[in-house]
Design a protein around this nucleic acid. Structure first.
Lengths: 166, 166
DNA sequence: CTCAGTGCAAACCGTTTGCAGAACG
DNA sequence: CGTTCTGCAAACGGTTTGCACTGAG
């Protein structure tokens, strides 16, 4: 088995978190953290399992889920559900901690962008409804530049537009 | 069994859609549509099953799911996933067809609001990234006015704030 | 009669959990 | 050495599907 890697200093943050919580820093936890922190993609659990196997680590899915639970709790990793039927995970380091997602309906690519406008939305919501924002999620689904340039047309079944005419 | 209801004229839109698609308007489909259109809430499939039972309809879950699939396809109903582990459904009639959601983390209440700001976000995204927006989703999670007034505090486990200090 | 729709129950699939054995501190 | 973690496999729960039966035209 591979020795504990120090390639990613961010893993040490996770180690610190675990120590603070009185939890052991096991090789499996370090390996999962390494995979998550060494990618800027939005990884599924299957992605991680595959990557771990390629690295020669033999780690069960249950352990990956359990470690992700810790990573999410530590606030170092964010959980996303893009409506694919499973979750994706993204670390919150070395990139804007608050960003939104553009998801291509054709190729599934995920882009990130920041939206300062949301701050005014949140303060308006607080003012108008007395609602106290804690966390938000803005996802825009559509066609990425490449798929659009390739002339992809999205199917548009259903009523032509009866709602607007009701 | 109850005769086909005409209480909600919107159901006729669904009937029109089904006819256009060459699909029969069955009593079950009408019953499910009636339940969905007669509520302005965000219903789960269990909610609908319960409501149908109370109305004396005996309709299997599978039929509810199959009918919801048709309703969503017809664009008369929208599917939501607020991260509860199951989906919720909301009809798109008699309310702003484009609205966003405020979800209370304490009591689960869902409020709706409109955000004109999102239009400029979408056009910016198109301009800057060449991404063509089709559909979006903005959800703000937090505390509704009532829960906030009641002094509810949300737990804040995890690292104090190491990310901002990295 | 024919054919799609329905209801039941089983299958599905991502995720969670129970438990015996291994590893950590 | 006790406690926690891990891996396996079984359980879970919302959703989907296969299939025999029903009902509408």
């Amino acid at each position: 088995m591979k020795p504990l890697s120090v390639a990613h200093p961010f893993i040490r943050l996770f180690g610190r978190y675990l120590r603070d919580q009185g939890l052991p820093v096991t090789q499996q936890r370090a390996a999962v953290a390494e995979v998550v922190f060494s990618s800027d993609a939005h990884l599924s659990v299957d992605d991680m399992e595959r990557e771990l196997r390629e690295r020669g680590e033999r780690i069960g899915k249950a352990t990956i889920y359990r470690t992700l639970d810790l990573l999410v709790r530590s606030r170092l990793v964010e959980e996303h559900d893009f409506g694919e039927g499973f979750k994706r995970y993204e670390h919150r380091l070395s990139q804007s901690p608050l960003h939104e997602h553009l998801i291509c309906l054709e190729c599934g690519k995920v882009l990130e962008f920041e939206s300062a406008e949301l701050y005014s939305v949140e303060s308006r919501v607080r003012r108008e409804y007395g609602f106290v924002p804690v966390r938000r999620r803005l996802e825009i689904y559509g066609l990425c530049a490449e798929c659009d340039a390739a002339g992809v047309q999205l199917p548009n079944e259903g009523l032509t537009c009866p709602i607007e005419t009701v």
